[in-house]
Design a protein around this nucleic acid. Structure first.
Ligand code: SF4
Length: 339
DNA sequence: AAATCGGGGGC
DNA sequence: GCCCCAGATTT
């Protein structure tokens, strides 16, 4: 990147930045939570649940004293629930090892559960003025096009280039935010706004008219799977739920409905013994995607007293409590069939 | 180095 | 419907 382009980028950012709620009154706690929430998640999708999470846990102490299940529940709608579990661990880790205030070096930040290269660089540069570059999806995409190279995974050479740039910048945090917001608003993942881009001249992919081919896209196989869900009702007001076991492919440890998932020839069960599979009438179907799994879900409503046996660990709760008990969107979609 | 781990906005 | 995102951790 030419020195002039770096200045243009910062100037563009100063005039076009969006003042999101999580960074208007800057504090390191809110930055941390928002950076974690935005991992692999588009801004528009993350904002409402992020606002809810910050309302629920406004500071490090409130997060540290909560229990893990509450924290995961408040992560509702964001997915990748280990991020929530790590937030909770991290709050306790910082409380115990750093007297409740964030460490200010990349090295120490990376020891915090859930904080890796990217998040450590973001926090260190934005809040402690450390000259360290962030390397996220935006940065890799932008430089992949500028250089017409595949930067995924990011080679050491890219880090060197960025480190050199940021060493010549006054405010590293501002530069890091600038390049990410440039990626989010101008050098978009698809259909980048090249006609209005101030980096055109030095952008090799643009000059060679191959921006659509960079970064190279990797397409991954999708797998169609079937998931049968059983809604065991009691007294028309209560519903049977159970903890999803640790050997399940996803949503492990969440509360959910009993059922079983079939992936190719493998069956994963949640509380259901296949041999005593209840006779039930199909109440409806829905589709949902988790990772590369295309799930066709079938929902069966079964009055619990019509069955001779039930899973031992099943718990009956008021239907109205489901929204505060299920973190996952998948189970909440199934719950909608109770109406 | 490669697999794992959710979800929804926007095209 | 499909794509891909302000990644981290485990294997
Ligand atoms: S010219 Fe297009 S592809 Fe190149 S940096 Fe600008 S927006 Fe991105």
């Amino acid at each position: 990147m030419k020195p002039e382009s770096i200045l243009n980028l910062i100037f563009w950012f100063q005039n076009n930045r969006t003042d999101h709620f999580f960074r208007t009154h800057r504090n390191v706690y809110a930055t941390w939570i928002s950076e974690i929430a935005l991992q692999q998640t588009r801004l528009a999708a993350a904002l409402p649940p992020l606002q809810k999470f910050l309302d629920c846990f406004p500071d490090l102490q409130s997060l540290a004293v909560a229990n893990e299940e509450q924290v995961v529940q408040c992560w509702q709608g964001l997915g990748y629930y280990n991020r929530a579990r790590n937030l909770h661990k991290a709050a306790r880790y910082i409380t115990e090892n750093h007297s409740g205030s964030f460490p200010n070096s990349v090295e120490e930040l990376k020891k915090v559960p859930g904080i890796g290269d990217y998040t450590a660089a973001a926090i260190a540069s934005i809040h402690f003025n450390v000259k360290v570059p962030v390397i996220d999806g935006n940065v890799k995409r932008i430089f992949s096009r500028l250089h017409r190279l595949d930067y995924n995974p990011a080679p050491e050479k890219l880090r060197d280039i960025l480190t050199h740039i940021i060493n010549h910048v006054q405010e590293p945090g501002e530069f890091n935010e600038a390049i990410m917001e440039f990626g989010q608003k101008i050098c978009l993942p698809s259909s980048p706004a090249c006609p209005s881009c101030f980096l055109q001249e030095e952008c090799i992919a643009f000059r060679e008219n191959v921006t659509a081919a960079f970064p190279p896209k990797i397409k991954k196989e999708k797998t169609a799977v079937a998931w049968d869900i059983y809604l065991f009702t009691r007294d028309k007001s209560h519903i049977g739920i159970i903890r999803i076991p640790e050997d399940f492919p996803f949503l492990r440890g969440h509360m959910g409905f009993p059922g079983y998932l079939t992936i190719k020839d493998n069956t994963f069960s949640i509380g259901i013994d296949m041999d005593v599979q209840p006779k039930a009438k199909l109440s409806g179907n829905f589709k949902h995607t988790i990772m590369h799994y295309l799930i066709s879900a079938s929902v069966f409503v079964v009055p619990a007293d019509s069955l001779s046996t039930l899973p031992d660990e099943i718990l009956f709760i008021p239907i109205a409590q489901l929204g505060a008990t299920f973190p996952s969107s998948f189970m909440l979609k199934a719950a909608a069939f109770l109406n």
